[in-house]
Simulated assay, not measured.
Amino acid sequence: MHYVQVKGILSAKNGMNLYRGCSHGCIYCDSRSSCYQMPHAFEDIEVKQNALVLLEEALRRKRKKCMIGTGSMTDPYIPLETELGSVRQAMELVYKYGCGFTVLTKSDRILRDLDLLQKINASAKCVVQMTLTTYDEELCKKIEPYVSTTRERFEALKQLRDAGIPTVVWLAPILPFINDTEANLRGILDYCIEAGVYGIICFGMGLTLRDGNREYFYQQLDRHFP
């Protein structure tokens, strides 16, 4: 982990990443691609030290309420979040300024913030997006080794449903000869039905295989699927 000072926190579409890099170890992660110009080891998490100050300044200037999103580049609920609490503090600011919130994660750590999710959803709107790639728990441990298992994410989706939080599942990526079986897809879809998700997204379905993404993915294929 290391700290940096940044010039801005919100993108033009009101997305933010409080961290850069990730420790979940997903073998297919596009955020490893060289085009994102990450100047440090991917597992050496970059913490944007002044992010919360910048976020409050940006929210204070907003003339219209909007949805603030996080999780597009780095899963916000990496283990480090348990220690630092940056995401929770950001959510508190989102609630304070009356904006909505959407988050994409693969971790059941999000349940720590269930109270805030409910408060935001009651005052504006809140949507939790959860990635599910495999119904097979053993396969999950190979392709997403350091994140909540699919079963744990499914249980989290049910708790979010019971709390009145709208949920969406990202069914991606589909990896040829690994998780593209009918049994796997039906298993995930059954989870989605039981959890009452509002929708399913298949974002391109496969991988970009850009520089950085490609090399790491092929290394992990050699390791786990020789």
Rank of each mutant, 00 (worst) to 15 (best):
K62V: 00
L104W: 01
C26A: 05
K142Y: 04
I193L: 14
E46K: 01
Q159K: 15
F101A: 01
L55Y: 02
G196D: 11
Q5A: 06
G15R: 02
F203Y: 09
A90C: 09
T181H: 11
E138S: 10
W170K: 11
A172M: 15
K106V: 08
Y36H: 04
L84V: 07
S23H: 07
T74L: 03
T131A: 13
T150Y: 12
Q5C: 02
Y97C: 00
C66E: 10
V127P: 03
V6G: 01
G212M: 00
E138C: 04
Y198F: 08
L209E: 08
G206D: 14
I165D: 11
N14M: 03
I27Y: 05
V197K: 02
G98Y: 02
P176W: 07
Y28F: 14
E182M: 11
T70D: 08
E92T: 06
C140G: 13
V169P: 02
G85P: 02
Q49T: 06
K96M: 04
L59I: 09
E81Y: 03
L185D: 01
E57M: 11
D211S: 09
G85F: 05
D108L: 04
Q118Y: 01
L114H: 07
V87Y: 12
Y77C: 06
R61V: 01
T150F: 13
Y28R: 01
L157T: 11
P173I: 01
R88C: 11
G71M: 06
G69Y: 12
I165V: 14
D211T: 09
G196N: 03
I120F: 10
V168R: 08
I178S: 12
C202I: 15
E92C: 05
T105P: 05
H40V: 13
I201Q: 05
I193E: 15
L10P: 07
A122D: 13
A12I: 11
Y77F: 10
K13H: 14
